[in-house]
Design a protein around this nucleic acid. Structure first.
Length: 595
RNA sequence: GAUCCCAUAGCUCAGCUGGAUAGAGCAACGGUUUUCUAAACCGUAGGCCUUUGGUUCGAAUCCAAAUGGGAUCACCA
């Protein structure tokens, strides 16, 4: 039980003993830095019980706690605020108890819940862009966080490898590609296929303009443009299993997969299971049958199937076309059910942008109405769009920020900055290159993950991502300082981190602050788990690093003459280093040993 | 037309399960290195927390409305 829980329980006890009142929950908060104390209780809510003035009530509770809780060293009262001071020895014992232990238990508990996290889910007609980057980093980090919190996590990716979009690229390549391949053009496969997607769109647009000049209305012009009709025909052939179309499709998708694999590898994300829509798009029809049988779904006169959600404030949703073919929603119903059958997940998290909020609301509602118990475990991890200063990214207008380019730029900047600061002395080329990558990609990942997932975020390509201040390089820098300290401590003072330390030291205010910060690692992890928010971890690790940076600046460690005090400070530094590294790994960010 | 989301320093973001004088970073200005890595540290300046009303002992935080911005509402994915 941590100290806040002890305080909370004892306060409930105090309220009972002193005033005979029953309260089921009491929350302490951190004391405002301007006042003396570690934790604060606001007593206004208990005045009804005590029937006394705030000051008196706070004083009485304070006295009770001081008498009955060994860890409470002192207290003070200001207006209705009861500030509790916890003894140094408690904090020192606490630090000793976590020293040399991992912050994240690598073993899963026996009763671990199974959580499937779906993320990435790209289309195979174009390369990944900044929006996908946010999705990938979020999904990966949330998966790591859930794992750290003791869940068995299955990371999945459903690749949208079929449909009209890929046919557009195929048509364009057939017409204008002259047999170009990733090898012949020395271009990543996903970029090559994306090039033809853009080419298709360009020519398609001009066909629409031509048609409209000939007097056709907008809708018809778009529908009857020769290129679009060719793409539609190709899609039909694909569905019929036409050998040539399938071969072309297999080849071009193969190029894309190779390209995606490189991007994922660079980004440092991975998957336990990859699904392909070409295998799953027919799923869901059995669920429709089930729904019809249960009377939840209805069939229209034209044979199409729908569900009426107007009573839930939503619309009628069609689930099967009149020709019996399935829709996006049908497919999603089917894949969810399939995944439950395969993994018996307790939770299934869909990492998908908030533009699909409505879709998931409907999807979950339907599955619940169909009476599937597992549907209660479905969750849409909805994240905001990444916007540019001029607004939303649009691939057709060429305003997308390409994932590969962005990562390369980040690494270039890291290379230049690192060299400029003269930080590569004594590193081999391999080590230096690894460092540039660690810093550049770390900066990018932190920049994206520190923002609350639910909120939209702005990326300004004109201003490069910072390496100073609230950034990953700053956090890494403080980790590196710890590592350097420990290396030197071993040489100079024979210090071994594996030892324990003497508790007989007087804590500096900043040292106590740092230990309390370490103390909040686990609550923060639990909150991040509950809210699916890597941002909470990012904010936590920045706070910790910042406090440490100040401490490091103001306090001498290796020059401290009292050896026990020096060892204590080294242990504190070491443990902070471990907490920083663990936190960064939860964000999918590696930390270097030197920089 | 309907529904949903958002609004905090010049900029990017924290804070939102109601609590003490609203915090960081960047940008601006000034200072700190014979001392453990200055990608650092310290200081100055910067705010009617969009507006109005309500609930409360107490509201950036909860409720309602207005304004501004975004998204969604296909037999598309």
């Amino acid at each position: 039980m941590n100290i806040e829980q002890i305080l909370s329980e004892k306060t409930i006890e105090a309220l009972k003993t002193l005033y005979g009142g029953d309260v089921d929950k009491v929350v302490f908060e951190r004391t405002n830095p301007d006042f003396a104390g570690d934790f604060t209780l606001v007593v206004f809510n208990f005045l009804k019980l005590s029937k006394k003035k705030p000051e008196v009530t706070a004083d009485e509770i304070g006295n009770y706690l001081k008498t009955n809780v060994a860890e409470v060293a002192d207290f003070n009262v200001i207006k209705g605020f009861l500030n509790i001071v916890i003894s140094d020895s408690y904090w020192l014992n606490y630090l000793n108890s976590i020293t040399n232990k991992p912050f994240i238990n690598p073993e899963l508990p026996a009763n671990a819940a199974t959580v499937m996290v779906e993320y990435s889910s790209p289309n195979t007609n174009k390369p990944l862009h900044l929006g996908h980057v946010r999705n990938n980093l979020l999904g990966y980090s949330v998966a790591e966080i859930l794992k750290a919190a003791g869940n068995k996590v299955i990371k999945t990716n459903i690749v949208n490898d079929r449909g009209i979009h890929i046919c557009k690229s195929m048509i364009a390549w057939q017409k204008w590609g002259n047999g170009e391949t990733p090898e012949s053009s020395v271009m990543k496969g996903d970029h090559l296929v994306g090039k033809y997607y853009v080419l298709f769109d360009k020519n398609y647009k001009s066909q629409i303009v031509d048609a409209k000049l000939k007097g056709m209305n907008d809708e018809d012009a778009e529908k009857y443009a020769p290129l679009m009709r060719e793409a539609q025909e190709m899609l039909l052939k694909w569905e019929q299993g036409d050998k040539q179309v399938r071969e072309l499709w297999t080849m071009m998708n193969g190029w894309v997969y190779k390209g995606f694999a490189d991007t994922y590898k660079m980004m440092g994300v991975d998957f336990d299971k990859i699904y392909y829509e070409s295998n799953t798009y027919i799923l869901g029809k059995d669920i429709i049958e089930d729904g019809l049988a249960k009377g939840v779904l209805k069939r229209r006169e034209d044979n199409s199937v729908y569900i009426d959600l107007t009573a839930d404030g939503l619309d009628e949703k069609t689930l099967l076309r009149s020709d019996g073919t399935s829709l996006y929603m049908t497919q999603d119903l089917g894949t969810a059910a399939q995944r439950y059958k395969e993994s018996h997940f307790n939770k299934l998290i869909f990492t998908v942008g908030n533009e699909q909020d409505y879709h998931f609301k409907v999807l979950f509602l339907i599955l619940n109405k169909l009476g599937y118990d597992w549907a209660k475990g479905l969750f849409h991890l909805s994240y905001g769009m990444v916007e540019l200063p001029e607004g939303k990214m649009k691939s057709r207008e060429g305003t997308v920020v390409d994932a590969d380019d962005l990562m390369a730029e980040m690494i270039d900047t890291a290379t230049a900055t690192t060299k400029e600061l003269g930080k590569v002395d004594g590193l081999s080329d391999n080590e230096a290159n690894h460092l540039y990558k660690t810093i550049g990609l770390g900066a990018l990942k932190y920049f994206i993950l520190k923002v609350d997932p639910k909120k939209k975020m702005l990326f300004n390509p004109a201003e490069s991502i910072d390496f100073n201040g609230n950034t990953a390089p700053f956090i890494m820098f403080n980790y590196v300082r710890v590592r350097a300290l420990l290396r030197k401590a071993k040489d100079i003072a024979g210090f071994e981190p594996s030892t324990s330390f003497n508790n007989n030291v007087t804590l500096l205010p900043k040292e106590k602050e740092l230990i309390i910060k370490l103390h909040s690692f686990t609550p923060t992890l639990l909150q991040a788990t509950a809210e699916f928010s890597p941002a909470l971890i990012a904010n936590y690790v920045y706070d910790l690093a910042k406090e440490y940076s100040q401490y490091y600046h103001d306090t001498s460690i290796l020059k401290e003459e009292n050896k026990e005090l020096m060892y204590f400070r080294l242990h504190l530094s070491n443990t902070i280093g471990t907490a920083v590294k663990s936190s960064m790994l939860l964000l999918g960010i590696e930390v270097p040993e030197r920089m």
